[in-house]
């Protein structure tokens, strides 16, 4: 049961990548906005991803396909490992279902399961649920220029608005000047201590967008641990009918 629940977070992760946000503008804000649009501001998306948790003594990997439309429709199919393969998750509005092919059962997931983190990965619940927007929930300040990930980057410090649904005290982002890629992000807690670093690499052109296809999340207090997400392919704005996001289709995904 536990593992099944853990899978949910993927949906939210995917949503956080592809969900549209509302926008407002200014100088540093303009840069953040452009970086945000790399991923967001779209109606629908489809992706193929791998997520690995890497620890000194062990490593676990999961692969999945996801589809999403607007803010409230998403579907995820687990394709690896073998034991979980074929399990599917459907999100419509605030409700979620899990299809378990081995026992041929559709399970409606209770709200308490949806806010759980993922299997000891370095994603926090906030990352996964990601209800905050890096554009509207923060004040942005341009700190200067620096090299990161082999590119000339703007360094922007983001401080959350007081009423924003954010757990961080501060975020610093290195965003490339040419392609607006977030090569590095540092997340600080409210006392100013570094909590984790995200490093993006392997920039590729996917569905006519230049995006990083490998993202590493490294917790600050455990430098020998990390979670690695690899985007194998992604498509934006593909035509998907609402009826695709149905319980019947969960069984038919492949």
């Amino acid at each position: 049961m536990k593992k099944l629940i853990n899978r949910l977070s993927f949906l939210f992760f995917i949503l956080s990548v592809i969900i549209p946000y509302s926008l407002s503008a200014q100088n540093a804000t303009e840069i953040i906005k452009k970086a945000d649009e790399k991923w967001n501001g779209e109606i629908s998306g489809q992706s193929n991803m791998t997520m690995s948790i890497i620890r000194p003594a062990w490593e676990r990997t999961i692969e999945f396909k996801s589809w999403s439309k607007e803010r409230d429709m998403a579907m995820t199919l687990i394709t690896y490992p073998a034991k979980e393969q074929g399990q599917a998750f459907l999100k419509r509005g605030k409700e979620m279902w899990n299809w378990m092919p081995s026992i041929e059962r559709m399970i409606k997931l209770p709200p308490s399961m949806m806010s759980d983190g993922w299997m000891g990965s370095d994603y926090t619940n906030d990352d996964i649920l990601n209800e905050s927007s890096m554009v509207t929930d923060y004040t942005h300040r341009l700190r200067g220029s620096e090299n990161a990930g082999g590119a000339d980057c703007w360094v922007i410090e983001m401080t959350p608005h007081e009423d924003a649904p954010v757990v961080w005290g501060k975020i610093v982002k290195w965003i490339s000047k040419d392609e607006y890629i977030q090569f590095k992000s540092e997340y600080y807690d409210e006392d100013g201590y570094l909590v984790k670093t995200e490093i993006a690499s392997e920039v590729k052109k996917m569905d006519s967008r230049v995006i990083p296809t490998r993202i590493e999340i490294i917790p600050a207090d455990r430098k020998n641990q990390k979670t690695v997400v690899i985007i194998k392919d992604v498509k934006f704005n593909i035509p998907i009918d609402d009826s695709f996001f149905s319980q019947q289709n969960m069984r038919r995904l492949r």
Binding site: M1, K2, I5, P110, S112, M113, S115, D116, G117, N125
Partner: peptide, 10 residues
């Protein structure tokens, strides 16, 4: 009834 706590205790 079922409930999962934030520390994954179910």
């Amino acid at each position: 009834l079922n409930y999962m706590f934030s520390n994954s205790l179910m």
